[in-house]
Simulated scan of single mutants.
Amino acid sequence: MSGLRTFLRDNGLTLVFGLLFLGALVGQALTGHAVAIEEQVEHGFDPITLGQYLTSSEFAVDVAENWQSEYLQFYLYIVATIWLVQRGSPESKPPSEIGRESDEKQLLGAHTKRESPRWAKAGGWRTALFSRSLGLTMLALFLTSWAAQYIAGRSAYNAEQLAAFEDAVSWGEYLVSSDFWNRTLQNWQSEFLAIASMAILSVYLRQRGSPESKPVGAPHAVTEESG
């Protein structure tokens, strides 16, 4: 198998979903631009160009509010599954392994392997940081995208206020506004529902060949077994 084919096979999941992301983002940009043109013409303004729309706060807030909720979902799920379990779900650890687990289980200290990541073998603050790096990165991405939603959302909201000949709102006023929290919570609730649904449905339903599912013939009560 050639090097390129091997690379595509070994990274297929990331590459396919990366392309799907780009396709959906382009589709959102084009359809959002079409909606923006309709609104501009309806109010008697000149149609906005695609470049103007892509650099507008309206487009930025629509993108950021989706990103922040996704990264929040992953962060909470990564951290929550350390301490919370769902008996029978392949998404959960067995109840007997609740917690941060032993060094032996985590391949740390005397249990590291020759191929273990360098920071896993380093000890001290580097191993401590590396052992939390996935959750911390997801948290940072969530906070960054949420801040982007807040900044772009205020700008878009104030543009609407000024167009209606009303006063613009301050940073503090927008932080406690219904617009900001409506944008935020409408995404959060869908992510929380998706996590809960996946956790419980994977106990009783199967998808042959998927690591997100137990083997088809596995008992419902079996936990942390994928097929």
Rank of each mutant, 00 (worst) to 15 (best):
E115K: 00
P215S: 11
F21C: 10
T6E: 13
E70R: 09
A148C: 08
A194D: 13
D62N: 09
S102D: 03
F142R: 03
H43Q: 11
F59S: 02
D10R: 10
W83N: 01
A194Y: 14
I200F: 15
T49L: 06
G124W: 13
E65F: 07
G51D: 06
S116E: 08
V35Q: 11
P47H: 07
A29D: 09
Y77S: 04
Y150F: 13
E91K: 06
T81L: 04
H33S: 13
F7M: 09
W125G: 01
L19C: 14
T144G: 12
D167G: 13
A140Y: 08
G88K: 06
R208N: 13
E42Y: 07
V216R: 07
A148Q: 06
L50D: 09
R9W: 11
A24E: 14
G99I: 05
W119I: 07
E97D: 06
V35P: 00
A148G: 03
L129V: 12
Y150A: 00
S170P: 00
I48H: 02
S197T: 15
S213Q: 04
K113I: 07
R132F: 05
A159T: 08
W125C: 10
G209C: 06
A148I: 03
L136Q: 08
R183A: 14
T55H: 06
G18T: 09
Q86L: 01
W67A: 10
K93M: 08
L20G: 04
A120L: 11
